[in-house]
Each structure stands twice: as C-alpha cells, then as structure tokens.
Design a protein around this nucleic acid. Structure first.
Length: 507
DNA sequence: CTGGGGAGGGGGCCC
DNA sequence: TGGGCCCCCTCCCCA
C-alpha cells in the first residue's frame, strides 16, 4: 500500500515536471515565432518605406522632366492650343448629365494621353505621409440645366481669365501628361494641382499656371442660375434648388467626456483614444466613377463630375485631393478613384465603409491601380493630417435629378422641410446642412469622436454621449407620474407609460 | 418590460 | 436672412 502511494506520488511529480516542460516549450515556441513575425513585419515595413521613397523620387524626377519638356515646347510652339476646346465636342456629345448620370469620356481623337498614367504617386503609409493633389477649381461657370458648355461661346482661350472663377463647366476630366502635343496652359490657368506628399512637411506643388501637371478639371454645375454662378467668389453652399453636394467629410476631432457633461476636445491625437483604428492605407477607395446612378444610392458609382462651387471658398478656392489618378483606357470613361490613405485617428472601420470598399474594388469600372484622393480643402493641406475641426474632406457635386436623392430609412433620412443639398458620398443620402452630413457619415466611417472617460464607450454624436453618461451618474431625470419608476431616457419613460395606458406597442 | 445605444430631425442661438 | 453649431427629442433596435 505504501509502495502504491509512493508510486502515485512519483507519477504525479513526473507528470508535473513533464507538464512544466511542455508549457515551457510552448512558450518558447510562441516567443520565437512572435519574434520572427515581428522581424518580418519590420522588414516589410522597411521595404515598403524604401519603395515609397523611390517612388517619390521617381515622381519628382518625372515632374522635372515634364517641366523641362514643357519649357521646350513653350520655346518651340508658343501658340495656344485650346485643350479644352478639343474636349468640348466630346464632352458635349458624350457627357451624359441627365438623371444623375454623368460621363467623362476620353476624347477619342486625343492621342496624347497615356494609359495608366497616374498624376501622383502614392506615398501614403507610414508615419505621416500625405499625398495630396489640390485641384483648385476656380473655374466654375454655370452649366445650367443639363450641360452648359459655356466655352463654346467663348472663343477666347479657355484657360484664361480669372473672372470665370466661379464658373462650372462640364468637360472631360483630363490629365494631360504629354506636353509635346499639348500647348501649355497660359499663366492664368484656373486649375491647379498641388501635391503634398512625403512627410507632412514635404510639399510638392505644381500648378498648371506654372508648369508640370495640367489638369483640365471641369467643375460641373447643374444649377439654373447662371447669374449667380458667373459672379463673385465661390459660394457655399450654392443656391437652393440647384445643387446637391455630396460630402465626404472626415473629422478627426476627439472629444472626451468627463462624465460631468463637460467635453474635452482632444483634437484627435489623444493617445488614449483606444478605439482609434487606422484604416488600411491605400486600400480604402472612395471611388468616383462615371455613370452614376444616384437613384440607386450606389455610392461607389458616383459620378466623378465633381464639385460645385460650394464650400470652396470656405477655406480657400481649392479642393485638395489625395492620391489622384486619372487613367484613360481606350475610350473607357475617365475614372476617378478616391482613396483615403489615412483616415487618421478617430476612426474605426465601419462596416458600411468596408462594404463600400469591397464593392468598389470589385467594380470593374473603377480603376484602382493607384490609391486615390481624399478631397479636402486647402487648409487641410496646410495642416496636413492633423486634426481639424471639420470639413477636412468635402466633395461637392451637383445632382441634376434631385429625385434620385430620396433619402432612405427613418424619417426620410434628412430634414424634410429643407432642401437636402448635402449628399453623403457613401450612400447619397441628402441632408440640409453640412454638419448633418458629417455626423451621418460617421455611420460609414465608424468615426466616434466622443468618448466617455469613465468607460470605453465612444459615440458619434455628442448627444448620445451625454445620454450615456447617465449610466455612470445614475441620473434618471424622467420619472413616471403614475408609479415610482424613473428612467434615464425620455423615450423609455414614454415607452413605459404604455404599461399604464394599456397601449400596445404593436397592433 | 427595461436598459442602453444608433441615428435622424427639429429648433434655438450665434455669426 | 441664411448657414453652422449645438442641444434635444424621437424612433428604432438589440440585449
């Protein structure tokens, strides 16, 4: 019996030793694998940075070459070739602007475009890269209902005259990269592309009025108020009844609640923002594509005939676009892809947003060979990716057919009495004012700037955070007059009172 | 039935 | 006067 006990004791001790050894081995394996994995990640990141650096260098070199080439062309052929006029016929003939559809079509006769020729090179990831093309759309003459190609009546050089700053035209979105066959833009070209790339401090700026890139970016207007459109600075927002402004906006503000109702705005760089999720750079495309069917709410097919005059003057004339690629393939419609290389802090990956991305990536009509742009205003460029109060990324457009903007969902999705000129670029839902869209778009982006300091909860809206704080404070301001029950939410009280009234929730 | 949160709309205030 | 901002209300959904 004693031997048996000793035997069992020995067995137990052996088992324990074996178990400890096994655990140690497992831990060692895990640690080793983890170390290897980390090394691989670091190596990949290094390679990635290196490649991007090279890419940027190549781009700079190419721009220099283009500049040189353009100077040569200037010297050789000083005559003004009216590029826009070349496209005019095509735009007039093929640009379909009815029913919310618009098409940008490469001019068939134009041989100078190069396929797969990005304007900018993605320089995105990493610590701080911001690659921005700012399209300064000073030109915004009214197009009137349908497509008004006012240039057809203006035989002067379409590139001239700042006096047409607010004019919108509908013409193909063109990236002209082949200077030898294209006359350089006169000094007063209204469209400017500014690239901000590399680090936050690195700015590569190229303007068509000087050299480098020439972009015939046409503002599209569908309004019927040419008088307004033709005068003065860019208005924001446009006159009612004419414009619908798709808005892609990213606010990076972080607001923390201290539980006492006071909000702490941490401007988005608060490291305590645990929910902050970095979007996968370069993969999230905000596609702007032709042949939009707005009535279907198909956001990624939204027309690229972007931008109204709206908002442009709020912080400058320009729209700043991250990562723009204009690619022309055969006679395929010109495609703009939009990509948010960085949503910055304060974002989580909203399901809708991902769904959108997936749909975009699977959309054969959308060229995704280069991550594209985030449209933002000039100020955002100057402040790089730093937090901003709002309006960082705003895309404006007009939609001819407002009937296609019927908001879905509860209450129509937008203010019923007011015009819904501001469109969510994710779902085309219309809202009466910009802020509403910004808040709404958090549904898609997952952005939740309002965080509770007493728990992990974050909210997209301040009001919801405030309501949530009653959970911590125990405050229940809504008391039932017929019983002792108290509630933190007014709706709950209202619902509760059905118990007394006998009202049934469902018939 | 209650608690909690998501999200849209309305209205007031300010510029 | 209109737009932005903020707050609140409300409805809805889910656990």
């Amino acid at each position: 019996m004693a031997d048996c006990v000793v035997f069992h004791t020995q067995i137990a001790s052996i088992m324990e030793v074996l178990a400890n050894a096994a655990v140690a081995n497992i831990c060692k394996l895990v640690d080793d694998d983890y170390a290897v994995f980390r090394m691989e990640i670091n190596q990949s990141q290094k390679e990635n940075r290196s490649l991007r650096r090279k890419l940027l260098e190549l781009k700079v070199a190419r721009e220099r070459a283009e500049r040189t080439m353009r100077e040569r062309v200037l010297a050789i052929r000083p005559s003004n070739v009216k590029i826009s006029d070349r496209y005019r016929g095509t735009a007039r003939g093929e640009g379909n602007l009815t029913g919310g559809h618009r098409s940008f079509v490469k001019p068939a006769a134009h041989k100078t475009w190069k396929d797969d020729q990005p304007i900018t090179v993605d320089e995105g990831i990493g610590t701080s890269t911001q690659h921005v093309i700012m399209i300064e759309s000073a030109d915004a003459e009214a197009a009137g209902p349908g497509v008004k190609l006012e240039r057809s009546e203006r035989e002067e050089d379409p590139w001239h005259s700042r006096d047409t700053q607010t004019r919108a035209v509908v013409e193909p979105l063109v990236a002209i990269k082949d200077p030898p066959t294209i006359a350089p833009a006169p000094p007063r070209t209204r469209h400017r592309i500014t690239e901000v790339s590399g680090t936050q401090n690195a700015v590569l700026k190229s303007e068509t009025d000087t050299d480098t890139l020439t972009v015939t970016h046409r503002l599209l207007r569908t309004g019927s108020d040419p008088e307004r459109l033709g005068k003065g600075p860019l208005r924001y927002p446009p006159a009612p009844g004419t414009d619908y402004l798709p808005v892609f906006n990213q606010s990076q503000r972080m607001v923390h609640s201290r539980g006492d109702g006071e909000m702490l705005d941490t401007a988005g760089d608060d490291p305590s923002c645990s929910y902050t999720t970095e979007m996968d750079p370069g993969n999230i495309s905000l596609g702007l594509e032709t042949h939009t069917d707005l009535s279907r709410g198909d956001w990624n097919r939204y027309s690229s005939s972007v931008y109204s005059e709206g908002c442009l003057d709020k912080k400058g004339e320009g729209l700043v676009v991250d990562e723009v690629t204009v690619k022309v393939e055969g006679d395929a419609p010109l495609t703009w892809n939009v990509d948010k290389t960085h949503l910055g802090e304060g974002y989580s990956q909203g399901r809708d947003f991902l769904d959108y991305r997936e749909s975009l990536e699977t959309n054969p009509n959308v060229k995704t060979h280069s991550p594209l742009h985030t449209v933002r205003d000039r100020e955002s460029v100057s402040t790089s990716m730093g937090p901003s109060d709002s309006h960082d990324h705003v895309l404006f457009d007009q939609v001819l057919n407002s009937k296609g903007q019927r908001a879905k969902g509860r209450g129509g999705g937008a203010t019923s009495g007011k015009e819904k000129r501001f469109l969510c670029m994710f779902c085309n839902k219309g809202f009466s004012c910009l802020q509403k869209v910004e808040i709404h778009q958090r549904v898609h982006t997952g952005e939740k700037p309002y965080s509770c300091t007493q728990c992990h909860m974050r909210f997209a809206e301040a009001g919801n955070l405030k309501r949530h704080q009653r959970v911590h404070t125990g405050e229940k301001p809504f008391g039932c007059t017929q019983c002792h029950m108290r509630f933190a939410q007014a709706g709950h009280l209202k619902r509760h009172q059905r118990v007394h009234t006998g009202e049934k929730s469902y018939s």
